[in-house]
């Protein structure tokens, strides 16, 4: 009799649990939307505190490397300044040519500023504080202030949106190597295109690159116009370890992404490009 009563209790418990889970899935947008709305002020504060304190601890840990890093950055800065001057000259020249040809200037992105609220505990997703009410739509690209690609909008709630990061396993997009400044050995080597695929855990791979292409560590990867999901010319990362085999027609490489969610607070949604 006791066994039967226990059995009845267990069946009721299992059915009750499954019913709760089922209902939660049916009303998941409402449930999640409510909790995001309710929690976002606390989460924003926690994210900012975490960002600041992580930066503080990082600076203590990496104090030894600061001097070396500083001199490297100075050198890089000088190189970049030279490039800026060169680019400004080119821009002037470009504008003159556009005017002469009667072509309009390239349209700038329409950006919407947003703040990160939280990061998924197990997957490469983040939650941001702009949603349907602010005109956010699915699949819009998300970038940071340095024109670095972060991800795209995957789910839109009334006041919040979920962003799937480019390092998520579900994301793949067309990219190419930034050729400017890279000495090309032949005309064919100027354009190196490949497919960037998220590997999870902030890792991205660069695949489908023909073996004969001259890929080197440190090359800059940018988005290409081929995919159409993201605007062209957004920074993705630098080439890391390269895997090349004589047996395989393609070579593969790791991309070390430029974005670091842990040290970002504000992002931009590209609403029009």
């Amino acid at each position: 009799m006791k066994f039967l009563a226990n059995k009845k209790k267990i069946i009721t418990f299992v059915f009750g649990l499954l019913l709760i889970v089922f209902l939660l899935n049916v009303f998941q947008k409402e449930v999640r939307g409510f909790f995001y709305w309710f929690s976002s002020p606390i989460q924003k504060v926690l994210w900012r505190i975490g960002d600041k304190s992580a930066g503080f601890f990082k600076s203590i840990v990496s104090a030894d490397n600061l001097k070396k890093e500083n001199s490297e950055l100075k050198q890089k800065n000088q190189k970049l300044l030279a490039e800026i001057v060169k680019l400004k000259e080119l821009e002037k020249e470009n504008n003159i040519l556009r005017e002469a040809l009667g072509a309009g200037l390239q349209k700038e992105f329409n950006l919407i500023l947003t703040e990160i609220i939280s990061k998924d505990v197990s997957q490469d997703y983040i939650l941001i504080d702009k949603g349907f009410k602010e005109g956010i739509l699915e699949n819009k690209p998300v970038i940071n202030q340095e024109n670095v690609l972060v991800g795209r909008i995957s789910d839109v709630y009334n006041n919040f949106s979920k962003v799937i990061l480019i390092s998520n396993k579900k994301v793949s997009f067309d990219t190419k190597i930034y050729a400017e400044g890279k000495p090309a050995e032949s005309e064919q080597e100027e354009d190196i295109s490949g497919l960037a695929s998220g590997q999870g855990g902030s890792k991205i791979s660069f695949g489908f690159v023909p073996r004969e292409k001259n890929l080197t560590q440190g090359d800059i990867v940018i988005t290409s116009v081929l995919g159409g999901i993201f605007p062209k010319g957004l920074l993705v990362g630098t080439i890391g370890k390269i895997e090349k085999s004589d047996l395989e027609p393609f070579q593969e490489a790791e991309i070390q992404p430029f974005f670091d969610i842990k040290s970002s607070t504000f992002l931009f949604i590209v609403s029009d490009f």
């Binding site: 606390i42 975490g50 505990v121 842990k262």
Partner: peptide, 22 residues
Amino acid sequence: YFLVLAQTSFLVHFSILGVVPN
């Protein structure tokens, strides 16, 4: 509730060898 909030918004900044303990 507060632990999960801290997990998703605060502790994500402090990874140990790329892993954030839950």
